[in-house]
Amino acid sequence: MFARQGPTLGELTVQALSSVERGYDLLAPKFDHTPFRTPAVVLDATAGVLAGYGPFTDGLDVCCGTGAGLMVVETLCDGRATGVDFSAGMLARARDAHPDASWVRADARALPFTDAFDLAVSFGALGHFLPSDRPALFAGVYRALRPGGLFAFPIEAPPPVASGWYWFTRGFDLTMRVRNAVWRPPFVMYYRTSGRSAVTADLSTAGFAPTTVELTAAGEYRPGSPRCLLVLARKPDPSR
């Protein structure tokens, strides 16, 4: 869970009572010592699958945080690697970790790119967007990709009802809904608002051709029941 260098309970409480942007600015110096950072096993599994879909030249990490996903971009792309996030604190940490990458501070619902990348990835960010926000997010990624470009991101597969994780996520989302009903500014973070059907439907509406594959290398709830699915959304290329 939390490493010794991670945030205290008091620091987490202050973050949870802040806006999303301010909360991550506060958490940034210790973020990599929390369980919120995308595990290396998920990053490695994603890179392993995407290696079969290249080659890629320029890559974008959407909602890059402290830059964990840049490992995937830098591994797969021969050209420039770019990260975008709206937290200045998270971007500062990312710059330190990946000095050769480019960094842009922007709201992911209004990405400032057009036909600039062959690959876009995102890790652990969808829970910070309400379903009503996804059309703007996906439209921006679609616009940022070149024809034939690929948008890829892991989502959690539904956990078994009998598992502790199933009930934790239900309880967490309920707690956040209560918090946001009684406290301002809201802190948007939900586990159960980004199911496969809803996400792929929104991607299709944005113009993508989405599919999903099981990310079995990232772990299983039980044999044959993967913890993660990898969403692969291709921007059509009219010339092909």
Rank of each mutant, 00 (worst) to 15 (best):
A40M: 10
T13K: 13
L27F: 01
Y24R: 02
D25P: 09
P29N: 12
L27H: 00
V41K: 08
S18N: 14
A40C: 03
P29Y: 13
A16T: 07
L26I: 12
G23W: 02
F31S: 04
P35A: 07
L17D: 12
V41L: 08
V41M: 07
R37K: 14
H33A: 15
S19E: 06
P29K: 14
P29R: 14
G23Y: 01
V20N: 05
P39H: 09
F36M: 09
R22A: 04
A28I: 06
V41F: 00
D44K: 09
P35K: 06
V14Q: 09
K30H: 09
T34R: 07
L26K: 10
L43E: 00
T13V: 09
K30T: 14
A16E: 06
V41R: 12
S19P: 05
V42T: 13
Y24W: 00
D25F: 00
P35E: 07
V20H: 03
D25M: 01
D25V: 01
V20Y: 00
Q15N: 05
P35M: 08
S18K: 05
L26H: 11
V14H: 07
F36Y: 09
A40N: 08
L26E: 11
R22K: 06
A40L: 08
A40Y: 02
H33F: 15
T13F: 13
F31E: 03
T13D: 09
A40S: 12
A16V: 06
D25L: 01
R37M: 08
T13M: 12
G23A: 11
T38Q: 11
S19I: 07
G23P: 13
P39K: 08
D32S: 03
R22V: 04
V41A: 10
S19V: 10
D44A: 12
V41S: 08
L17Q: 11
P39G: 15
T13Y: 14
F31V: 03
L27D: 00
R37P: 05
D44N: 05
A16F: 10
S18E: 13
L43D: 02
P29M: 13
L26W: 04
P39A: 11
R22D: 09
E21N: 04
L26G: 06
V14P: 01
Q15R: 15
D44W: 00
V14S: 08
R22G: 01
K30E: 10
S19N: 07
A16N: 10
Q15G: 07
G23D: 05
F31Y: 15
A16K: 08
T13L: 11
S19Q: 06
K30A: 12
D32K: 02
Q15V: 15
D44R: 12
K30D: 12
T34K: 06
P39Y: 03
L43S: 03
P35G: 05
D32I: 04
Q15E: 11
L17A: 14
L43R: 05
G23L: 08
L27P: 00
A28T: 05
S18H: 10
L43Q: 02
E21W: 02
D32A: 03
F31W: 05
Y24N: 02
D44H: 05
T34D: 12
S18T: 07
A16P: 01
A40E: 14
F36E: 07
F31H: 06
